[in-house]
Structures are given as C-alpha cells and as structure tokens.
C-alpha cells in the first residue's frame, strides 16, 4: 500500500518528523482508519526514497504516541485513536499552515492589518462566511 506522503526539499524539518506529522494528519482526517495495515518499514523507505533508519524512527514515534501499533510477525496497523486526539491534530495542522503563511507575509514586510484583510479575502473566495 502506498501512502500520500510528500517530503519537502525546502523544509528544515527533519524527514522523519515530516513523515510522522503527515501520517498523523492522514489518521486524524480519517484517510487512514483504525486497523488499516501500514507498509513495512523497508517498503515505505523505498516509496519515500528514505533510509529504513528514518522510517523506523517515524514509526517508533507514532507508536509511542499511540497512533500506530506493531504486532510481531503481522505488521504495523493504524491504532484506535480517540476523538479528542483527532480534534487536536486537526487544530494543529491548520495552525501550522497559518503560521507558515504568516511567516512568508512577514518576510515580505506585510503589516498585521494587511494580513488580516488578505486572510478575510481568502476566506471569502473559498466560500466561507465573512463574519
């Protein structure tokens, strides 16, 4: 099974961390559901063109945080994570994306006011309520 994970060349975030976070998002968003089998470490390393050391580290962290479970001889599966955790993940992901956008804006010397205006425009354009 292949996973829709995309690694960034421009990010300074370590690769194992990128994989870890994107897998959390896939689980929180319900694209990966409880009990689904995950690729083996070697197979994912091939798909994502990383080393097994990197994948092992990401899997270990995910397992430690309760997102996945490994059963000896059977493989790795998506764990049962609770609703609160999913919510937290969603908030964290949106927050991260906003932070990245704000960082870019500040790099171009936008003011907070200009940024707020832009943000509302985007919300409007995407069909959200502008209240």
């Amino acid at each position: 099974m292949e996973l829709p994970i995309y690694l960034s060349k421009t990010s300074r975030e370590p690769i194992y961390h990128q994989i870890e976070n994107q897998m959390k998002t896939l689980i929180a968003s319900g694209q990966l559901t409880k009990g689904m089998p995950l690729p083996s470490i070697r197979a994912l390393a091939k798909d994502l063109e990383t080393s097994v050391i990197t994948i092992r580290r990401a899997y270990q962290n995910l397992e430690y945080q309760g997102f996945i479970q490994t059963t000896q001889g059977k493989g790795t599966f998506v764990a049962d994570i609770d609703h609160d955790m999913k919510q937290q993940m969603k908030v964290a992901e949106v927050y991260q994306a906003m932070e990245a956008a704000v960082e870019i804006a500040f790099k171009y010397d936008y003011t907070a006011e200009q940024l707020k205006k832009m943000c509302l425009e985007v919300i409007h354009k995407k069909g959200g309520n502008q209240t």
């Binding site: 370590p14 690769i15 194992y16 990383t50 080393s51 050391i53 990197t54």
Partner: peptide, 8 residues
C-alpha cells in the same frame, strides 16, 4: 553516511 543525514 546515513542517506537522510547526508542529504539534509
């Protein structure tokens, strides 16, 4: 070299 650390 471990591949990722080399690339990173």
């Amino acid at each position: 070299f471990e591949k990722e650390s080399l690339i990173h």
